[in-house]
Simulated assay, not measured.
Amino acid sequence: MFSKPTTVANITNKFNPSGNNKHFGVDYAQKGTNIITASADGTVTRSYYSTSYGECIMILHEINGQIYETVYAHLKSGSRKVKVGEYVKKGQAIGLMGNTGNSTGQHLHFELHEGRWNDAKSNAVNPLDYFVTDPIAPVSNNIEYTVNKGDTLYQISKSYNTTVQELSAYNNIAKDYVIKPGQKLKIPSKNSIYYEVKKGDTISNIAKEFHTSVEKIKEWNQIKDINKIYPGQKLRVG
């Protein structure tokens, strides 16, 4: 019914709805860059910062006539990839594991509610009882689009649920965003992670932050000179 929201296997805190140490979800913890994925198809109901949950996403699901809501908490700051009202697919990347909010170390706090989430968490159930498979492979949009006469990057980005900035970065398109009929565009995977360059950033430091290599960032973004990046530029980093 639901897939695990991470490939991380290490559980540091299990579901415990009673007693002195109540815990209404399951915690997965591991250092490094760990992608968090939607456990089932559904609609994003919350994508916000909470003082307790930190960077948090909630998704509403309807399965066989039953309403469920999943919670993904303590995500990495700035990593949330989905907005309220957006429809997501099972296995789609929605963020990165982090250490925000009321958290003492990098981990994902995952909750599953049979019914809507509420402050009392009265609908919380043990997610481990609902996982029917190992984590599925993240949804991918590894396809190529041929530009037609009259196409714009904006129109194409909307069709494939991406952005002009991501398309241009992925295809090394100049800032004027000019494209030509017959041109082949690679469509970014929904599982790709992007970073917005800040003043003082270097490719080396960005690669280290996202546990990847300078060579991979150069290849993903078709960068010829690693010393020529600029604030506001979107780079694929995973």
Rank of each mutant, 00 (worst) to 15 (best):
F2R: 06
S3P: 00
T6V: 13
T6E: 09
T6I: 13
T7L: 10
V8D: 14
N10T: 15
I11K: 15
I11Q: 15
K14N: 14
K14V: 10
K14S: 15
N16K: 14
N16I: 02
N16F: 09
S18M: 06
G19K: 11
N21P: 00
G25K: 14
Y28K: 06
Y28L: 05
A29S: 15
K31M: 04
K31I: 01
G32E: 07
N34V: 07
N34R: 13
I35A: 13
I35M: 05
I36A: 02
I36L: 05
A38R: 03
A40I: 00
D41F: 14
G42D: 05
V44R: 06
T45G: 02
R46F: 11
R46E: 14
S47I: 14
S47G: 09
Y49M: 05
S50P: 14
T51F: 13
G54H: 12
I57C: 13
I57L: 08
M58H: 10
H61E: 15
E62A: 07
N64W: 05
I67H: 00
E69D: 04
T70Q: 04
T70H: 05
T70E: 07
V71K: 04
V71C: 14
Y72R: 06
Y72K: 09
L75P: 00
K76R: 12
S77A: 13
S79E: 08
R80D: 00
V82Q: 13
G85M: 10
G91L: 12
A93V: 15
G95I: 08
G95Q: 13
G95L: 04
N99Y: 03
T100K: 03
T100V: 08
G101S: 07
G105F: 10
H107V: 07
H109P: 05
E111I: 02
E111V: 00
L112T: 02
H113E: 04
K121C: 04
S122Q: 03
S122I: 13
A124I: 08
A124V: 10
N126P: 14
L128S: 14
D134V: 01
P135I: 04
I136K: 11
V139R: 04
T146G: 01
T146V: 12
N148E: 11
K149H: 07
I156L: 12
Y160D: 06
Y160C: 10
T162E: 07
T162M: 08
Q165I: 02
Q165T: 14
E166I: 06
S168D: 12
Y170G: 00
N171A: 06
N172R: 11
N172I: 00
D176A: 08
D176T: 03
Y177S: 15
V178Y: 05
V178W: 04
V178L: 11
I179C: 01
K180W: 12
P181E: 11
G182Q: 09
G182T: 09
G182E: 10
Q183S: 07
Q183H: 11
P188I: 06
K190A: 02
N191F: 08
N191R: 09
S192T: 04
Y194W: 10
V197C: 09
G200Q: 11
T202I: 07
I206C: 06
I206N: 05
K208Q: 13
F210I: 01
T212K: 03
T212D: 02
T212A: 02
V214L: 01
E215H: 03
E219R: 12
Q222K: 15
D225Y: 15
I226E: 14
I226K: 13
I226N: 02
I226L: 02
I226Q: 12
N227C: 00
N227T: 07
P231H: 03
P231E: 00
Q233H: 01
Q233T: 01
L235K: 01
G238M: 03
